[in-house]
Amino acid sequence: MSSSSAKEVLFGLYDDETQLLDAVRAANAQHLEIDNVYTPFPVHGLDPLLGLEESRLHIAGFFYGLTGTSLAFGFMTWVFTRDWPIIFGGKPYFSAPSFIPITFELTVLFACIGMVVTFYTVCGMGPGVKAKTLDDRITDDKFCIAFATSGLSNDDLGKLSNFFTETGASETNTKTL
């Protein structure tokens, strides 16, 4: 899944996710290196076939959350025990139970913002980013397998065309990304 600046791509469109999954299996069997797969919705069972490892986003989320927890709890503790201690209702300065709600809220807030920002960053997405779409119907009802073709021999290209015909792609096309 490289993302170099200019890339020749040969892609095939399938009409159904069942065909797509079968085609990916066939490509694996023929040792064809798939560049990327694009679908209109998340297709379950696709990730293991493509050899995609589980996303580590949730691990990052845990650490963002932990930052929020320690920041909130640490800050309130500092304010009420060091910076400006005040007695409220006869309670001790360090009144930990009443710090829990804000600590919880900030944990969630930090985890959420951190994960969302990380998600867009690692996906290379954000406001103003132009989408490198292969076909407008991929966000509608087409399931797409793309192969990088830069530097491939005619033999290899023929193999890929055969692959698309055999696996029942409804269309094939080339595009430079």
Partner: peptide
């Protein structure tokens, strides 16, 4: 935001939604 529907993006998107 430049969404393409790439398999890896969907995977992250689902992971994000779940968390």
């Amino acid at each position: 935001f430049g969404w393409t529907g790439a398999a890896k993006h969907w995977q992250r998107w689902e992971s994000l939604s779940l968390v």
